[in-house]
Simulated assay, not measured.
Amino acid sequence: MHVHLLQHSDFQGPGRIADWLTSMGHSHTVFHLHAGEAPPSLADCDALIVLDGPPGSEDEAELPWLKRERKLIGRALDGNKPLLGIGLGARLIAEALGAAVGRGSFTEVGWHEVTRSAQSPFDLPERFTAFMWHQRVFALPDDALPLGGSQASPVQGFAWDGGRALGLLCHLEVTRAGVAELLDSAEPPQGDAAGPNVQPREAILAEGARFDRLAPLLDRLLSQWLSTARA
């Protein structure tokens, strides 16, 4: 399979997703939309992944490529190819499905526990810890199933059309080096920096094993998601 990935920031790239695709024998192309590259054609791929982006990335007045990206997501939803969104990507998919997207009650930065929903069609642990980097959230789209939630964000993800379209607020793809670069280079999501759901840099990077534990979760999720292409 060949997978297109849409990137919106120098510091929010594919992370482990790129390595996973290669290890499983899939090819991929990353389109750096923030650097002026145009959104690709769906005809040239078997699946589409829309990555996270910086705050304010949903403003078409400032980002001329965003209108074309929204149209691309709409065509992907209308088609039969697997579609995965993370962070900003998940919000754009939720928006295209008619769900409300907006500022959440709490900012989540750092490591937080996700409890799997009983309705989730994806085989993930009942509870797992994921990396968070968001202030904006989405409601559950109509006809979608919830994947799970955290204490601060009840909807951490959704599956639509039998799991073919998947949105994740949390991050399973990050590496320690990638998060360190993100913390060094990007403004964190706006919100209460002293809130209980915002962790300092030292706490985020303290335990390298947390990043390692994301790898099998990502493997399980991506394997099940791409299987929808053959369903």
Rank of each mutant, 00 (worst) to 15 (best):
S41C: 11
L42Y: 11
A43T: 15
A43M: 09
A43Y: 05
A43E: 15
A43R: 13
D44Y: 08
D44L: 10
D44A: 15
C45F: 04
C45Y: 05
C45D: 05
C45A: 15
D46C: 09
D46M: 08
A47C: 08
A47Y: 04
A47N: 06
A47H: 03
L48F: 09
L48R: 09
I49P: 00
I49Q: 03
I49Y: 01
I49C: 04
V50N: 07
V50C: 12
V50H: 02
L51F: 00
D52K: 01
D52H: 05
D52R: 00
D52S: 14
G53W: 08
G53K: 03
P55S: 03
G56V: 10
G56A: 07
S57H: 07
E58V: 13
E58I: 10
E58D: 10
D59Q: 09
D59I: 12
D59G: 03
D59E: 12
D59A: 11
D59T: 12
E60A: 15
A61S: 15
A61G: 00
L63C: 09
P64Y: 08
P64F: 09
P64S: 14
W65N: 06
K67R: 14
K67S: 15
R68G: 08
R68L: 09
R68W: 01
R68F: 01
R68H: 11
E69Y: 00
R70Y: 04
R70W: 02
R70C: 07
R70G: 02
K71L: 15
L72I: 05
L72P: 02
I73A: 02
I73P: 00
I73D: 00
G74D: 07
G74W: 09
G74N: 09
G74M: 05
R75P: 03
R75M: 13
A76V: 08
A76F: 14
A76I: 04
A76H: 09
L77V: 05
L77Q: 07
L77G: 08
L77P: 07
D78A: 14
D78Y: 04
